[in-house]
Amino acid sequence: MFEVIFLQFLNGLDKGAAYALIALGLTLVFGTLGVVNFAHGALFMLGAFCAVLFRQLLTMETVTIDPTQLSPWGQPLEVRAPLVQAWFGDFGAVLVNYSVPASIIITIPIMLVVGIALERGIIKHFYKRPHAEQILVTFGLAIVAQEVIKSFFGPNPIPQPMPTDLRGAADIGAWLGMQANVITYPIWRLVYFLFAGVIIGAVFAFLQFTTFGMVVRAGMADRETVGLLGINIDRRFTIMFGLAAVVAGVAGVMYTPLLPPNYHIGMDFLVLSFVVVVVGGMGSLPGAVAAGFLLGILQSFASMTQVKALIPGIDQIIIYLVAVVILLVLPRGLFGRRGVMEA
């Protein structure tokens, strides 16, 4: 019985990690800029498509028809050679194999630029506007981003292979000194969880231990006073928006082997992440992370056959049910402060 519970706990981790990463970015934007960003799911999706794009670039091939060789049907044989492999040899092959993690290299600058452009171009005009209008404009932006992606990459999911070394399952039970082959867990999910842990730790360390982070935290607490001290807080907040976009983007990149991305993957995650943010408490970073993992793990437990037999359909509604109960019992979520977003 312990093994079953432990396994379900593990199963919830990777989804919980994805929720936590998206919710972290959402909360970062809300805590600094005070903007409810419905386009955040679209940033997750854009990140995922950075990976797709990177792989498509890497696997561009030259097709030459070689008349000296014949295929079994007697036609001249087409020789396909990936350009990267032609240029870089073995290193190119490794790069293609590790295209998903490697695409983080291009994702970070792209998402930073997208995030800063979004903030400077549109969202900055909405600071003083009511939250309903912020929701609406970012919702519109999300639709635009989705449709642009759809028109370039098509409506179907595009599977991204994980690196060959990281396929298969890890025998976690044996690592922990338990019976072998009872608790096995796909390696990539473990990688995703560790990756999310690193990102979350990095964001917290950045806010906690750097001067930049300290100024940002001060600005979150009292924007005006920080401004009066002669610090250009707007620029730092813009960079924080870019950072939130990067977090969402890399979360999307690393999730692609688990779920082939299509253009509305962001929307699917957005609704859940909003529930996560609100459950954690609007504006609380630890709350967002805790609620992300909590809901991911609860969802995993609810999909157990035993639980489903007890309460039919619970796996479909558990997250929303938890959200409703928490919001009705604890009006400001798990870690929320008083008076945030209640108008």
Binding site: A323, L327, P331, M341, E342
Partner: peptide
């Protein structure tokens, strides 16, 4: 609840 909590 009101505000965004109501929406959610």
């Amino acid at each position: 609840r009101s505000g965004i909590y109501f929406s959610i």
